[in-house]
């Protein structure tokens, strides 16, 4: 496998301005040194609490926000600062599905017009109507939907239209930002299955952002866990949930209630106390140390780097207790 997208140390800082002269007094470090790769045909999940910067990562990959630092490489080419024509062709190859299918579809356009617009704007060469029908079929919608307006459809159907639009130009990478979070459970499962099917048949790569760990786990090959603008753990999806290494990942998994009442993972002291600190003044050293129950004195001053740990394949974590954690889980096995 080769890397389709390579992200290296990207940073997105938003300035905070104050006073008459709008002087920059501070900056919010929404994304602070994030690196990962997405292989061809791979689905990478990105999870974390709200405000951890996962959506900002997505927006920077879609070139909707400017990077403060770092590089994005797509298919061997640096795309961090491309403009006009190059940007247009980049956006043809990388598309997005958003959370709320109601606000991301134009209420005054029919499904046919919504899909047709994408194709005409990008000068699609073949017959547009055939392509529209093909897209609808691909997403499990009947032909009659061409004539319908968004308000005439249910949430699940609208999200299918959102997916059809993302697929219109045969992209190579699709970025899904909370694509199934707004749907009812029974419909959510339908859309999750559809995304998996599309991935297998079309060989697409995915960056899947979500806060529902079990859904992300189900869809993705690898998962990256973010906390306060940094990635704290990354690894194989199934592996990572069975055997989380970073204290934050552990706590996050413990917080998800299982639907099996007998499976009491519930360990109340494992619950994270407090809330995510403000990104305006992130804690020194390891950003997680204020909520971590394993913290040692060093955590307050020394910033941990992403390092390989000896659990599973290609697992990396950013924690000063790295070695100890590796040893502990080896003993368990």
């Amino acid at each position: 496998m080769t890397a389709l997208m390579k992200i290296k140390d990207i940073e997105v800082h938003f300035p905070v301005r104050k006073g008459l002269l709008q002087r920059e007094v501070a900056s919010i470090k929404a994304v602070d040194g994030v690196s990962f790769e997405i292989q061809k045909g791979e689905a990478l999940g990105l999870v974390g609490e709200s405000g951890c910067g996962k959506t900002t990562v997505a927006r920077s990959l879609l070139k909707l926000v400017e990077l403060t630092g770092g590089t994005i490489e797509f298919d061997g080419q640096v795309v961090s600062h491309i403009k006009s024509d190059k940007l247009k062709s980049y956006r043809r190859r990388v598309s997005a599905i958003f959370q709320d299918p109601f606000s991301s579809l134009n209420p005054r356009m029919t499904v046919g017009q919504i899909l047709g617009e994408v194709l005409t704007v990008n000068k699609y060469e073949e017959d547009i109507n055939t392509r529209i029908l093909e897209l609808l079929a691909l997403c499990g919608l009947a032909e009659r939907f061409v004539e319908l307006y968004p308000h005439e459809m249910s949430g699940g159907q609208r999200q299918r239209v959102g997916i059809a639009r993302a697929l219109a130009l045969d992209p190579e990478l699709i970025i899904c930002d909370e694509a199934v979070s707004a749907l009812d459970v029974s419909i959510q499962a339908q859309i999750v299955n559809l995304l998996r099917e599309l991935r297998d048949t079309l060989g697409l790569s995915f960056l899947f952002i979500g806060h529902d760990l079990s859904v992300v786990q189900h869809l993705c090959d690898r998962i990256a866990v973010m906390y306060l603008g940094k990635i704290v753990e990354i690894g194989n999806a199934q592996d990572l949930f069975k055997n989380p290494a970073h204290p934050y990942t552990k706590a996050l998994i413990d917080a998800v209630p299982s639907i099996d009442p007998d499976e009491k993972r519930l360990n109340e002291d494992m619950f994270l106390q407090g809330e995510v600190p403000s990104p305006l003044s992130p804690p020194s050293g390891c950003v997680f140390h204020t909520r971590c129950k394993y913290r040692i004195e060093e955590c307050k001053t020394k910033t941990p780097l992403m390092e390989q740990v000896d659990i599973g394949q290609n697992r990396m974590i950013a924690c000063l207790l790295n070695e100890e954690i590796g040893l502990n889980s080896q003993q368990k096995q």
């Binding site: 029974s186 959510q188 099917e197 079990s214 786990q217 999806a237 199934q238 639907i259």
Partner: peptide, 22 residues
């Protein structure tokens, strides 16, 4: 219950959604 993915579920199997709309 079948349409909820579980953290330790087998990923090779698709989920079993309820067909249709609420």
């Amino acid at each position: 219950i079948r349409s909820v993915p579980k953290l330790d579920s087998d990923k090779s199997m698709p989920l079993e959604p309820i067909s249709g709309e609420p």
